[in-house]
C-alpha cells in the first residue's frame, strides 16, 4: 500500500457557509496499481485529487481526514497535516501530477528543457540534459524537441511531454486529472497505451480521474465511482463494468459507448447532478434513481462490502437481510 486515505473532507468555504465537495472519502492505493475515479462534472473527483496532493486553491480547503503516504524510504507522512514547506521535498519525488490541458499546464514562455531542468535541479539531479532526453524518448518524443516552446508542439505531443515531465523524478504516485480529455481519440488511445507500458516498466501507482467510465475499464485495475462528493461504489474494474452494484454506476456505464464492443443503445442518466449546497436527506442519487424505494429518501446508505466490492446502496441491504 502506498496511499491510505481516511475520511477526507474538502470544503469550499464562503461567507454563506461551507460547501462540502469531498465528503468522508476513504480508499487505499496499492503499489503499482491504477485506480480510476469516475463521476459526472461536479461530483468532487477533481477536488478529491487536488486535495490528495494539497494543491487546492482557496476557497477550497481540507477540513478533515487523513492522507497517509507510505514512501519507499522514510516514515509514513500524513499529507493533509504537513506544512507547505515540509511537502516541498515530497512533491514530484513521491507524487507528481498530470493536468487536464497541457497547453495551460506548461509555462508558455519557457522552453521544454527549462521546465524539465528546474524540477530536476530542485530535486538534486545532476545530469539534467541526459535525463530530459531520456524522459522525452520514453514517451516517444525526439530529444531535440526539448528546445521547443509549448506552442510549437501539437496537442498530443504536449500531453506526452507532460507525462514525461511527471516521471522526471521517478515518482511513486502519478495523479492524472483527465489527461486525455483535450486530445483526439487516436491520441487518447496512444497515451493510454503509453501509461500502461510505463507503469509496467517503472512501477508507479496512478490515480486517474475521468468522466469516461469505458475508458477507465481499459486502463484501471480498480475503479471508484463518485457521486455528490462521496464514493458510492468501489471495486475491480472489470467487475464494475460487467455488473455494477450501484444504479448510478450502471447509468454511467450505459451513457458511454464501449471502446471495443459494438455500440448498442446508449442511455443517459435523467436529471442533473445534485446541488452540493442542498443534498437530499437520504441517498444523494435518490431523485434520479430508477430503482429507488421508500428507504432511499429517508436514510443515506453507507459504503459497505457487497461481496465483490463496496457499494453505498439500499438495494443491497435487502439482499443482506434476505441472505441472513
Amino acid at each position: 500500500m502506498i496511499l491510505d486515505v481516511k475520511g477526507l473532507n474538502v470544503d469550499y468555504i464562503s461567507a454563506a457557509g461551507a460547501v462540502r465537495a469531498v465528503n468522508d472519502v476513504s480508499f487505499q492505493l496499492r503499489r503499482g496499481e491504477i485506480l480510476g475515479v469516475a463521476g459526472e462534472s461536479g461530483c468532487g473527483k477533481s477536488t478529491l485529487i487536488m486535495g490528495l496532493i494539497r494543491l487546492l486553491r482557496p476557497p477550497a480547503a481540507i477540513t478533515g481526514g487523513e492522507v497517509w503516504l507510505h514512501p519507499r524510504e522514510g516514515r509514513p507522512v500524513d499529507i493533509a497535516r504537513r506544512t507547505d514547506k515540509e511537502l516541498r521535498k515530497l512533491r514530484w519525488r513521491s507524487i507528481a501530477v498530470v493536468l487536464q490541458s497541457a497547453m495551460d499546464a506548461l509555462n508558455p514562455v519557457a522552453r521544454l528543457s527549462a521546465q524539465f531542468a528546474d524540477v530536476l535541479r530542485e530535486h538534486g539531479y545532476r545530469n539534467v540534459e541526459e535525463r530530459t532526453a531520456e524522459l522525452l524518448e520514453m514517451v516517444g518524443i525526439s530529444p531535440d524537441r526539448a528546445r521547443s516552446y509549448p506552442h510549437e508542439m501539437s496537442g498530443g505531443m504536449r500531453q506526452r511531454a507532460m507525462i514525461a515531465l511527471a516521471l522526471a523524478c521517478d515518482p511513486e504516485i502519478v495523479v492524472m486529472d483527465e489527461p486525455t480529455t483535450a486530445v483526439d481519440v487516436v491520441m487518447q488511445r496512444q497515451i493510454l497505451a503509453q501509461i500502461l507500458e510505463l507503469r509496467q516498466k517503472l512501477g508507479f501507482s496512478v490515480v486517474f480521474v475521468t468522466h469516461d467510465l469505458s475508458l477507465l475499464v481499459e486502463l484501471a485495475d480498480r475503479i471508484a465511482i463518485m457521486y455528490g462528493g462521496r464514493i458510492v461504489e468501489l471495486g475491480e474494474a472489470a467487475e464494475i463494468y460487467r455488473s455494477p452494484k450501484h444504479p448510478y454506476t450502471k447509468g454511467l456505464r450505459d451513457s458511454f459507448p464501449p471502446l471495443h464492443a459494438p455500440v448498442t443503445r446508449l442511455s443517459g442518466i435523467p436529471g442533473t447532478p445534485p446541488d452540493l449546497r442542498n443534498l437530499p436527506h437520504g441517498c444523494a442519487f435518490e431523485p434520479r434513481c430508477p430503482s429507488r424505494f421508500d428507504e432511499c429518501a429517508q436514510r443515506r446508505p453507507e459504503l459497505l462490502d457487497v461481496g465483490d466490492g463496496l457499494a453505498a446502496c439500499h438495494l443491497h441491504d435487502r439482499e443482506r437481510t434476505a441472505h441472513a
Binding site: I53, L55, R57, D84, L87, R88, K89, L90, R91, W92, R93, A96, V97, L99, Q100, S101, D104, A105, L106, N107, P108, D118, V119, E122, H123
Partner: peptide
C-alpha cells in the same frame, strides 16, 4: 496566479519565490 502552469510549478516542489 490561477493559471494551471503556476499550480504545476507548485506541484513540482519549487520554492515559492521561483
Amino acid at each position: 496566479v490561477s493559471e494551471d502552469y503556476v499550480l504545476l510549478g507548485k506541484a513540482k516542489g519549487l520554492s515559492s519565490g521561483r
